[in-house]
Nucleic acid binder design. Structure first.
Lengths: 127, 127
DNA sequence: TTCTCTATTGACATTATGCATATAGTCTGC
DNA sequence: GCAGACTATATGCATAATGTCAATAGAGAA
């Protein structure tokens, strides 16, 4: 299975991990699976665990070994801190800005393409 | 002037440089100025020049010293290659995907917030 | 000549990414 | 019981990308 090839969507990893945790505590493997819901499957597991360690070091999440039975080795369960909730609110604002930039980009691109297509189709001055 | 702090919008740098060049050849300083049109002012100049060198090494753009007068030191003028135009078309597809993911993210976040707000405002079972 | 703006580049440190791999528990079927 | 698949987390290492800072230098204005 080819995974994580190139930086596609990697900038959405952290915000999306937090968003899933907003819906409730989760362990790494589960987060990895649920990223598929956001078209972010295909990310190498090591990147997810590394992101989680990083978030914990920043105080955005906390973690503890799960006391309940696992279907494998013990799980480390992560949940949001208050800082994490605030971070999410900041992410929302950031997301809106990025979306606006992307919209501007797409519009500028398509506008240019449309204009140059018209030039190609009407080389002589029609009206 | 604080510049380039953190990865804000940095993922849009390359596509946006190419988009501006699609509208016509341009030199680095000019590109840097025109990035403001896409809310990408505030990027350190060295990042822009580095991106341009990288694009040239990849054959996405070519460059030459400008023969015309500068209002300062000589300018290096960049223009798109055919590969660059194809790259732009790929960027368009990528942009649309990212845009979709961001929409999904925002919708999930706001949906959760709305749901939890309702729980807060109606703790007893009203209908 | 000094200051600001124009213009490009390089050095250096830090951080992120990609990929491979180690470790190990559980579960299913044989 | 053991092989193989799935669950679960973590580390090491090489390379790529970023951030910061500063060097260099021409042109134009005061």
């Amino acid at each position: 299975m080819r995974r994580g090839r190139h930086g596609r969507g990697r900038e959405l990893l952290q915000p999306t991990l937090l968003l899933i945790m907003l819906q409730g505590p989760a362990h790494g493997y589960e987060l990895m699976e649920r990223l598929k819901e956001f078209s972010l499957g295909d990310i190498d597991p090591s990147l997810i665990y590394r992101a989680l360690h990083h978030l914990e070091a920043e105080g955005i999440v906390t973690s503890a070994w799960d006391e309940k039975d696992s279907q494998g080795p013990p799980r480390r369960v992560y949940h949001l801190t208050q800082d994490g909730r605030e971070m999410l609110a900041q992410h929302l604002e950031e997301m809106k800005k990025i979306r606006q930039r992307i919209d501007d980009w797409i519009q500028a691109y398509e506008h240019h393409m449309q204009a140059s297509e018209e030039l190609t189709n009407k080389p002589k001055n029609e009206e």
